[in-house]
């Protein structure tokens, strides 16, 4: 058992940063119509959630589920699988989460008027902006070729980041279920990006932590208001 302690994360990452970046260039070139549609979905989500609460919440959640299923199939099970034997397994997990999001789309709802001030809404919108706009912008700033940008809807990291945001904004029933796989992937992706020296490696765990903090605060607030109602 102690043998496992002798392994480091780099023992499990079989590709270099250069090849990882080229992977996105080739992937974007091959599937550019899907990349454009995915980005369009992201921009639409920004617009639909820009006011007080999101309009068309069910449609947004369903579109998000479709993005996850696309990434499972086209990215992990095909492109990424060429570089990493674990690709199809991760693809399976992403497909499952896509189905969970599709199931959750039935119960997605805009911010209820009774919730009052909720820090989760601005944080959720911030995470959505981070996934759709800031992630690719930061990649550009760190020297990534524009052809190899990772974009919402077709690349995993920005989609996961925006998913945390949309789950906070759309509040589906059983919100934890479609958040578990994004949470796990945040950790795995951070380790991978750290090993290959990609500077954005802390962003996903930070997004996951913000998501968990908001959910915990919402639960505590609900309990507090239930106690007040009971006492009165």
């Amino acid at each position: 058992m102690t043998e496992w302690l002798t392994y480091s994360a780099s023992d499990f990452i079989p590709f270099s940063r250069g090849i990882y970046r080229r992977l996105f260039e080739l992937y974007n070139a091959r599937y550019w119509p899907a990349v454009a549609i995915g980005l369009g979905v992201g921009l639409a989500a920004l617009r639909l959630c820009g006011g007080r609460g999101c309009s068309r919440p069910g449609l947004l959640m369903a579109a998000l589920g479709c993005c996850w299923i696309w990434i499972a199939w086209a990215f992990f099970s095909a492109a990424y699988a060429e570089l990493n034997w674990a690709g199809p397994y991760v693809g399976g997990a992403f497909a499952l989460n896509g189905l969970l999001l599709l199931a959750a789309s039935a119960s997605a709802r805009p911010r209820p008027p009774s919730t009052g001030r909720d820090i989760g809404d601005p944080i959720g919108y911030g995470l959505l902006v981070a996934g759709v706009v800031l992630w690719p912008a930061a990649l550009l700033a760190f020297g990534r070729d524009w052809r190899g940008l990772e974009l919402f809807g077709t690349s995993p990291e920005p989609t996961v980041l925006a998913t945390f945001g949309l789950l906070l904004l759309l509040r589906p029933r059983g919100v934890w279920a479609p958040a578990l796989i994004p949470g796990l992937w945040s950790l795995l992706a951070a380790v991978t990006l750290r090993v290959i020296d990609e500077p954005l490696w802390p962003v996903l765990p930070a997004g996951a932590a913000a998501f968990v903090a908001v959910l915990v605060s919402r639960v505590l607030r609900r309990r507090r208001s239930t106690r007040i109602e009971t006492n009165s």
Partner: peptide, 13 residues
């Protein structure tokens, strides 16, 4: 060939 030859279908690599 660990890492160095894991280049997939990238024609340049």
């Amino acid at each position: 060939t660990w890492i160095t030859f894991n280049v997939g279908d990238d024609p340049r690599a």
